[in-house]
C-alpha cells in the first residue's frame, strides 16, 4: 500500500506544524524513507507554510492616510466610558507576590496601595468626534472640581489627537483655561500618532498645554500599573 494514501492531509499538516506526538512523527518519518509521493506532499506543505511566513515577514508601515475617517469603533465607544481601576494589579500583583502572600493578602496589598494615594485619573480619548472631546474635558473638569488634590491626565491618540492639535482643536481656549486653574492636570499627546501623521506628510503642531509621550498605549499601561483610574471615552 502506498504510504502517501495512509496519511490524511490533516495529519500531514499536523506533522509539518509539529503538532503530532513522537510515535506519529516516527511513523511518518519512516514512511518518507520509502515513499517519494509522501515526501513530495510534505515538501509542498512546508513550502506553503514558508511562503505564508515570507509574505508577511515585512508588513506595510502603520501610517494612517491623513484623510481617512475611522468610524468602525464609534458605535461601540459612543455608548460611553469604560472604567477600570488598577486593573493590572490582579494579574501582575498576584503573579509576583504569590510566593510570599496568600490571595487575600495580595488583595489587601492592592487595597492599601489605592487607599494611600489621592485620586489619579487617566482619561483616554481616541476619537475626534466633538461630543467625545467634550465628554473627556467634562470628566477632567468634574474630577478636578470634586477632588482638589486629584491628578488628572487626558491622553489623546489616533483621531483623538485632534483635541491637542493647534489647527484642529475646537477647545484650545477651554484647555488653556483648565490648565491655568489647575496645576495637577496634564494633556498628553501620543508620539506614535504624531510620527505617523508626519510620516504621511501632515504638519502636526500641538497646543502649548500639550505634553508628549512615546506611545499612548505604553503611557496607559504605565499609569494603570501605578494604580491610576483609567477612563476610556
Amino acid at each position: 500500500m502506498n504510504d502517501a494514501k495512509k496519511f490524511s492531509d490533516e495529519r500531514l499538516n499536523a506533522f509539518v506544524d509539529n503538532q503530532l506526538g513522537t510515535q506519529e512523527c516516527d511513523e511518518i518519518l519512516t514512511a518518507m524513507a520509502t515513499d517519494a509521493e509522501l515526501g513530495q506532499r510534505l515538501c509542498e506543505l512546508r513550502s506553503i507554510k514558508e511562503l505564508v511566513r515570507h509574505a508577511y515577514g515585512r508588513v506595510p508601515d502603520t501610517r494612517r492616510p491623513a484623510n481617512r475617517h475611522l468610524s468602525i469603533w464609534s458605535s461601540a465607544l459612543a455608548a460611553g466610558v469604560t472604567l477600570v481601576i488598577g486593573v493590572s494589579i490582579g494579574w501582575w500583583g498576584h503573579q509576583t507576590t504569590s510566593a510570599q502572600a496568600s490571595t487575600g493578602e495580595v488583595a489587601s496589598w492592592s487595597e492599601r496601595l489605592f487607599a494611600t494615594e489621592p485620586a489619579r485619573i487617566l482619561i483616554h480619548l481616541d476619537s475626534s468626534q466633538p461630543e467625545q472631546m467634550d465628554a473627556a474635558l467634562d470628566l477632567a473638569e468634574a474630577y478636578l472640581a470634586k477632588a482638589g488634590s486629584a491628578r488628572v491626565e487626558v491622553i489623546a491618540n489616533n483621531r483623538g489627537l485632534d483635541l491637542l492639535r493647534a489647527r484642529t482643536t475646537p477647545y484650545a481656549a477651554r484647555i488653556a483655561s483648565i490648565k491655568s486653574h489647575h496645576e495637577r492636570v496634564g494633556f498628553i499627546a501620543c508620539g506614535q500618532t504624531i510620527a505617523r501623521l508626519r510620516g504621511g506628510g501632515e504638519d502636526v503642531a500641538l497646543i502649548p498645554q500639550a505634553a508628549l509621550t512615546r506611545t499612548a498605549i505604553e503611557h496607559v499601561a504605565e499609569r494603570v500599573q501605578q494604580g491610576w483610574t483609567y477612563l476610556k471615552i
Binding site: 508588513v59 506595510p60 508601515d61 502603520t62 501610517r63 494612517r64 492616510p65 481617512r68 475611522l70 468602525i72 469603533w73 469604560t82 477600570v84 486593573v87 493590572s88 483616554h124 481616541d126 491618540n157 489616533n158 498605549i217 496607559v220 499601561a221 494603570v224 483609567y230 476610556k232
Partner: peptide, 17 residues
Amino acid sequence: AALADDLAQEALTRGLS
C-alpha cells in the same frame, strides 16, 4: 494597513482594560 493598525490598537486597549 490603517485598519490593521486600528484593530491592533483597539485589541491592546481592550486588553489593558
